[in-house]
Design a binder for these strands. Structure first.
Lengths: 343, 343
DNA sequence: CCTGGCACTCGTGTCCCCTGAGTGCCAAGC
DNA sequence: GCTTGGCACTCAGGGGACACGAGTGCCAGG
């Protein structure tokens, strides 16, 4: 009974604090929320909540502020994710549907997320490892210059140039076509990880004269498949929203800006969110970086199919609108996944 | 005679102000620089410099601060660009030489610039329009699916997928090879702008049966050539350096962050710098954006050949170390140009 | 033309006080 | 047993008074 009201008080504190950015006192609380009791009662509840470590007061004569644990409880139990309005859904859909290719999808998603949440948005490019091979093409650009093209199920196209060494015979059109057929047979439709394994064995089955060249081609293809750069690539947007950070400027802005430059760090921030299509919330010091202990991360996996391919999300102050943010992240993740499924 | 000393005073003021970030007074000036005269004399000079609009005092009882015009004069006449040290040159060279492709060159350049200047670095991807066509390739991925590959002198590879409509006959291998030969004849080695013009006339010379497909292929090629996205793409780095901005945080940080998100705005900032391989300095309100009136831009064109292809540079507070920054921007532009020339 | 001296300005830091928001606790009431 | 009004207490933040000192402009003498 009182327990219920206490949680209601916590919810009210979180909501008010997020909105006003100021420690919230017992009096203003009863004024703004219909709690049906007097300030004195609220004070008792607050004392209890503080005892439990859910709220704290910056200084003696100030109101209360949620702790990380307070936000945690709020997120886990006190909030129903408010669904996006029809208008918002439509806006998301039309905005993302205009994308022409994978890169465009990612870039639009970042903008969209930043705009919806008013936070810094991060979108990881879909990793190759989870996707499958749609097509492989070999092209002789010049007698001794071969272009290897790899097309993946995500729509990504990778290409590599291969130079045939001067002391090697350049493969003929027919030989090339044959090689291509063999490659396709091995990898078409296969997942990247499997494709790499199959390819490794290919050169041995080829006529010795062409083994050298085939080896090089396979090498290029494997490299394209395990391309580290696109594997770890992320897009960042909405950094201008940092200007609203306000107070915690000096203390947390610099490490955050530094983190945003380092894609590796960002991937660490998104963390295991990429593993599942559910929204993950990391509050304050729960995150992997102690420098960012006053920021939270709301992230979700996305990708075609039910197991996520990559992650997207936002970074913001612990004092953020969690329900709205979670809803936005979830919505964008779903729409992007849907789009990736179509193509 | 006095005129000379006045300029020396201006130089000293700029140097001290940049270093200390505080208005500089007559007394500290004679202490730090061997000007050989007394503070009173300096005061007279300062009054004259202020009369000319080169310096100003924030408030009556404070020292002097350079105006935009003061910085301008300093940059134009009072500073010899200090050459980079041998160590720095070597560091630049080795850092950039490790790049594997064009994107990598650009990304490394951004990091390098940011690190050298401690400012926010901007590097424009080389525009296509100035480069020439090295090769065109047509590949039938499936009977009704053609891949158009365009390779440019800058090393950039663009590709487009073309679907042959169901009601059209798919071109045979021979027809495709023939079409490719014709295309190559028209555009190989040509500048993008010319190539686009030549291609437009191609379909008319083709047998009517294939005109439709040829037209689509030409369309895809033209689109790849005038790809707006890569045309205007820029890389940004070193935003963490914004944290050092210090005082002018609130006023100029937000617009700057916003500008950094908008690539179009960044291109405007770099401005005509891309037109020539010389270093351009834009101080404060000289720039195109009044919101950024307290920031300066130091930029330079770069690219293979003597006429620049794209621009790179840095954005920072008007109060910056111009000689060092100019030297760094120039050095990086030259090295990047050299690398583009090699490949 | 330079220099030392001098009066003047004014931003900044410090101390102090006051106000008001907010609390904790207690005794009375439902 | 929870709730409530009352009350004393704490303390951050704002505002005024004040001294300090950096820096200036001007003037008269070298």
């Amino acid at each position: 009974m009182q327990e219920e009201r206490r949680l209601a008080v916590l919810r009210a504190i979180v909501q008010d604090y997020v909105e006003t950015r100021e420690p919230v006192g017992s009096k203003t609380l009863v004024e703004r929320h219909r709690l049906g009791v007097s300030p004195a009662t609220i004070r008792n509840d607050m004392a209890a909540l503080e005892e439990e470590g859910l709220i704290t007061q910056p200084h003696t004569s100030a109101g209360r502020v949620p702790t990380d644990a307070g936000y945690r409880l709020f997120v886990d139990r006190l909030t129903a994710i408010k669904p996006m309005s029809a208008g918002e859904r439509r806006a998301i859909a039309t905005f993302l549907d205009g994308a022409v290719d994978l890169d465009d999808v990612v870039q639009r998603s970042v903008r969209l997320l930043a705009q919806l949440t008013h936070q810094v948005a991060i979108v990881q490019y879909p990793t190759l490892s989870g996707s499958t091979v749609r097509h492989v093409e070999l092209v002789a650009i010049a007698p001794s210059r071969l272009l290897v093209v790899l097309i993946l199920s995500t729509g990504r196209v990778e290409q590599r140039l291969v130079e045939v060494p001067a002391d090697q015979p350049a493969p003929s059109e027919d030989e090339l076509a044959d090689l291509r057929r063999q490659m396709l047979g091995l990898v078409s439709g296969a997942r990247i990880a499997d494709a790499v394994a199959s390819l490794r064995g290919l050169p041995e089955t080829i006529s010795p004269a062409q083994q050298e060249v085939a080896g090089q081609l396979v090498e290029a293809l494997v490299e394209a498949m395990s391309d580290h750069r696109s594997e770890g690539r992320v897009a960042v947007g909405g950094t201008a929203n940092l200007a609203r950070f306000g107070d915690s400027f000096d203390s947390s802005l610099k490490p955050l800006l530094e983190a945003l430059e380092e894609h590796v760090v960002l991937l660490k921030l998104l963390g295991e969110a990429g593993a599942s299509p559910a929204v993950t919330v990391r509050i304050g010091a729960e995150g992997p970086l102690q420098e960012l202990s006053s920021t939270s991360v709301v992230a979700s996996g996305y990708g075609p199919g039910s197991d996520a391919l990559a992650a997207l999300g936002i970074v913001g102050p612990t004092r953020m609108d969690y329900p709205g943010t979670i809803a936005a992240v979830r919505a964008v993740a779903r729409y992007v996944s849907a789009i990736l499924n179509e193509t």
